[in-house]
Design a protein around this nucleic acid. Structure first.
Lengths: 190, 190
DNA sequence: AGTGTCATGTAATTTGTTACATGATTGA
DNA sequence: TCAATCATGTAACAAATTACATGACACT
């Protein structure tokens, strides 16, 4: 369900091709939701059939075309309803926590190394989220700028601050996890 | 992959039947990993075929039996290797973050209500994790006690503290999310 | 006799992962 | 002409969700 809404969310900023969306949800850019190419193309066709988005064929050279999808009125309503509804939390499923819960059964040095890797990863995630938050506050990201062209200028600051706040939260959680992991290393050393 | 290791982790504390494991990974108890019954029974058979666990048929009345699974030497090694290896982080996939990222597109009062529900849920999660942490520190949980019977008494305190620390981390993250959501409500009101 | 818990499964579907496959266009 | 990027797909598989299904046993 959520991939659908994540796609609607970015297509509301700007109509995009499947290829654009693949890059957006792949790897580094997709900090909020990740999805491989093999999931995106079929989903776009399903969403078009359901009338949530409309595809527009654009010529890119004599033989190559791309299909640019935009959100329909129906898609817009569907997204608005989903956004305004409180959903049950996703069931917890974090492989790293399964690991941490069993650190007492392996040698302390091994657990230390796994925690080192975890700390490095979380610190990187925090730094990236903070950098993105700052870019959003300065309205420097391409997608936010395009989004703002469709919105009342009086609201631009508020919108940027709300978007930035999401990445602020991601960073805050990552920082807490780093502190937690450091405390875990202290406990392992005992 | 992780369900397998989560199952091995709890079976190392104590041999259990499929039914026991279903209750453990279902709903309230499964704070770390959740899995429905329809996933657990087939997985147990797959793991038995792979030689990671061994099933022992126990009579429970004249016609009813249960199969109690315990971790084999091979399963123990498999778990130890997995625990000692740093794995890539799971791709981010949090439906709530998709929601939060688009709060600027719906009326502020609606977003407020969704955040209210989120705050209530995270506060509950934090309280439960803290309560469980405290029970672990006092060695009051049945599973920890059984686990400790197989371990060196000199290590009991360290093991309890390491397990408790995992739930401490879960609680800390939930508390940060609550603070983040409150700040989000302040931003929405602007 | 009936409710609740113990105990174990299957079937259908959706979602996500990994890998393979093809061709056009752009710019060095 | 070669590499990088643009552009779109398929196939096979693994993981997870929802729903259905059955029967034994314990207690009241």
């Amino acid at each position: 369900m959520s991939l659908q809404h994540a796609l609607l969310g970015v297509l509301e900023a700007r109509p995009m091709s499947g290829y654009d969306l693949v890059r957006f949800f792949d790897g580094s850019t997709g900090w909020i939701w990740a999805a491989p190419q093999s999931q995106i193309y079929p989903m776009l066709r399903r969403m078009e059939q359901a009338g949530l988005i409309a595809g527009d064929e654009e010529a890119r050279g004599p033989r190559l075309t791309r299909t640019v999808y935009s959100v329909t009125e129906k898609g817009h309503r569907e997204l608005a309803v989903w956004l305004g509804t409180a959903h049950d939390a996703a069931p917890p499923r974090d492989p790293f926590m399964v690991q941490a819960l069993n650190f007492d059964t392996i040698p302390a040095e091994e657990a230390m190394k796994v925690l080192d890797a975890f700390i490095a990863e979380q610190e990187k995630a925090a730094a990236e989220a903070e950098a993105h938050r700052d870019r959003l506050l300065r309205k420097e990201t391409a997608l936010l700028r395009e989004r703002l062209t469709r919105r009342d200028p009086a609201e631009h600051d508020r919108i940027a601050r709300l978007k930035a706040h999401v990445f602020d939260g991601i960073a805050a959680v990552a920082r807490v996890r780093v502190e937690w992991a450091r405390e875990g290393q202290r406990l392992l050393g005992e």
